[in-house]
């Protein structure tokens, strides 16, 4: 089974790109399945169902979605094997942009849209910086000059990845991504692999459900915008 991790900010077009690409892969006889991870709400499973794509939806709810992803991904992998998938795609939203669901040795795709502004590539963080293939969506909605500047900024943020422009609505460009996926090797086992980038280090009483805002330090490992003395820390 080939496996890929897909990441990108909310509403940037991940699902559309995956649906268009999966349709091409399914046509060529590669059964493609998707695990959709979202934080609070997602109705993308109905979109996948309508497109005839095997899928599973997961909502991380109260737990940091990236932690949730890391602990669930072995089971998702098993789910893919049980469903006899040829291609397993995990789709997770960008969330805070501090983490990346990308795993070493597993092809990583990042989706970013042109409307997010030209500084978006620098802000997107590890999920873009550690990706192997970057998909730029909504490129037809901006001027050619802005598109070029955007491409340039993506290139600065990640000099290594291949960059493709895909129109999620028409599927223009999805052929290239499908071809890229076909070229990828099989992933035999997921246990024992490593994330490409660490998780954030905060772990405090807010993580455990504290909601009150107070001067008193939250118990645990957390960073303050201003340290007790007033300086930055």
């Amino acid at each position: 089974m080939k496996m890929l991790t897909f990441a990108g900010a909310h509403a940037c077009g991940k699902t559309s790109v995956i649906i268009k690409t999966a349709a091409i892969l399914n046509e060529t006889g590669l059964k493609t399945g998707v695990m959709k991870l979202d934080c609070i709400f997602s109705d993308d499973d109905s979109l996948y169902r309508a497109a005839g794509i095997t899928n599973i939806k997961m909502i991380s709810g109260n737990v940091c979605p990236d932690h949730f992803f890391a602990v669930s991904v072995p089971q998702v992998f098993e789910w893919g094997l049980e469903n006899r998938l040829d291609v397993l795609i995990t789709e997770s939203a960008g969330l805070c942009g501090r983490c990346a669901p990308h795993i070493r040795d597993i092809p990583a795709v990042c989706v970013i849209d042109c409307l997010a502004g030209i500084s978006a590539p620098a802000k997107t963080g590890p999920m873009l910086r550690y990706a192997d293939h970057i998909i730029i969506t909504k490129a037809d909605l901006v001027s050619p000059a802005e598109r070029e500047v955007f491409l340039h900024n993506v290139r600065i943020a990640n000099t290594r990845a291949r960059i493709s422009l895909i129109n999620g609505l028409t599927g223009q460009g999805a052929y290239r991504l499908a071809a890229y996926i076909r070229q990828q090797g099989e992933t035999e086992e997921i246990r024992g692999k490593y994330l490409r980038f660490t998780m954030p280090s905060a772990e405090c009483s807010y993580c455990a459900g504290q909601t009150v805002i107070d001067d008193a330090p939250a118990a645990g490992r957390i960073k303050y915008a201003w340290a007790a003395g007033g300086g930055t820390g």
Binding site: S143, P144, S164
Partner: peptide, 30 residues
């Protein structure tokens, strides 16, 4: 790839808030 064609679509917008001069300079700089 990505540098063969410049495509001017029908539904084009500017999404940046810049003066024309700054805009052209930025494109030229990149």
């Amino acid at each position: 790839e990505n540098r063969m064609c410049a495509y001017l679509a029908q539904s084009m917008n500017f999404v940046m808030e810049l003066s024309c001069e700054a805009f052209i300079r930025m494109h030229a700089a990149c």
